[in-house]
């Protein structure tokens, strides 16, 4: 165990520079922060402030130029390629703004894909459960081009959560969706959070950020502010998780039933 706390994520003086021709773009210029289990964090900031850069590093999709990224007290920079692949597959569920589904395979197969690389058992059962959670079981055998934007994003979320990751990272998950559909997506995150899931969401929109209980604002590659808010969605202390999920997030079926 390293310095002081037992955080899930810890960034220490993180820098990321991009080389564009002869110029160097400093996308992150010394970010330090810590995120704990079951936090529900919104990352905000102007375009170009470094949000995606930071998320990519958090998701082990990119490596920092300088500084440390500790995931469960483990310095990610020291890990081998295959260990990194394992982390990407098992510990992190990444949700992209543009969904990034395999276009030629069904929703169900898409959801199974990370588990395939992670060699998990019960792939089908887990995938079905994940699709049920996002209320999309009736579209399990549809291909992405047969789904709406919101449905695609829900498939992507199911894919991110099927292998029960430690963290779900979502980079502008509602960026390509209208505000109504965006809110539906956020309600799914709300319910996942209520079940104990750690979630980090990048967004431009205040009403999306309002779902979260902590907002970190970036500006020019630095943390400008980091504020905690009262929890809008209380973590219900006692009843079973499934009950909460149902109570908090009315999935599609409920909406139709009403």
């Amino acid at each position: 165990m390293t310095d002081g706390g037992d955080h899930l994520i810890e960034l220490v003086d993180l820098h990321k520079h991009y080389r564009v021709g002869t110029e160097i773009v400093r996308a992150l210029r010394g970010v330090s922060l810590a995120i704990d289990v079951n936090e529900y964090v919104a990352i905000m900031g102007q375009s170009g402030s470094g949000k995606s850069t930071m998320m990519n590093i958090l998701g082990c999709l990119d490596i920092p130029t300088k500084g440390n990224y500790l995931l469960r007290n483990q310095d990610v920079a020291r890990l081998s390629q295959s260990k990194l692949a394992r982390i990407r597959g098992r510990q992190i569920g990444f949700v992209f703004q543009s969904f990034e589904l395999l276009s030629r395979t069904t929703a169900l197969k898409n959801v199974q894909l990370p588990m395939l690389y992670a060699q998990m058992s019960n792939k089908k059962r887990r995938a079905v459960a994940a699709l049920e959670k996002v209320g999309l079981m009736d579209r399990a055998h549809h291909r992405p081009n047969q789904l709406s934007g919101g449905q695609k994003q829900r498939v992507a979320i199911a894919r991110a959560l099927a292998q029960e990751p430690d963290i779900i990272l979502a980079d502008e998950p509602t960026g390509n969706l209208d505000s109504q559909t965006g809110d539906d997506i956020m309600r799914i995150f709300d319910s996942l959070h209520a079940e104990g899931q750690t979630i980090i969401v990048v967004t431009h929109e205040e009403h999306i950020a309002e779902h979260c209980h902590r907002v970190i604002r970036l500006r020019d590659g630095l943390v400008m502010s980091d504020e905690r808010r009262g929890r809008r969605i209380p973590i219900a202390p006692l009843p079973g998780r499934a009950a909460i999920a149902e109570a908090v997030a009315p999935p599609m079926q409920n909406a139709i039933a009403v």
């Binding site: 999709l61 390629q81 692949a85 597959g89 894909l113 690389y117």
Partner: peptide
């Protein structure tokens, strides 16, 4: 890129 993002190793 996507496959690698969700856990595919180089070998895969």
């Amino acid at each position: 890129g996507l496959r690698k993002s969700i856990g595919a190793r180089r070998r895969d």
